[in-house]
């Protein structure tokens, strides 16, 4: 378990957006959401290749605030699970 945690802390590892913590930065690798949500995220600037940082999480990571291209976006932890990122 500790090993895995260690691994996750490392840079360049693919993980889910929901696994990031406040202050982390990452690059989006893949978005596995429904068509509608994908399109909505795209219009916010959340697409493959964009960089993001995690600005805040509510208790239990019910919701997260991320920043993409100077835009602050609030989304649910559930939705963040569908976004694959590479930690920077």
């Amino acid at each position: 378990m500790v090993m895995i945690m260690q691994l996750y802390r490392d840079k360049g590892i693919k993980m889910k957006l929901s696994e990031l913590h406040k202050g982390d930065k990452a690059m989006i690798k893949k978005i596995d959401s429904s068509e509608d949500l994908k399109r909505r995220l795209a219009s916010f600037g959340v697409v493959r290749g964009s960089e993001l940082s995690v600005e805040a999480c509510s208790l239990g990571k019910k919701t997260m605030e991320i920043m993409v291209d100077d835009t602050l976006i609030g989304l649910r932890g559930e939705e963040a699970k569908e976004i694959e990122v590479e930690k920077l």
């Binding site: 959401s33 429904s34 949500l37 909505r40 995220l41 916010f44 919701t63 605030e65 835009t71 602050l72 976006i73 609030g74 989304l75 649910r76 559930e78 939705e79």
Partner: peptide, 11 residues
């Protein structure tokens, strides 16, 4: 079904 929550946070 639940609807996703994605929302812009204005300045």
């Amino acid at each position: 079904e639940d609807e996703p929550f994605v929302m812009e946070m204005p300045k």
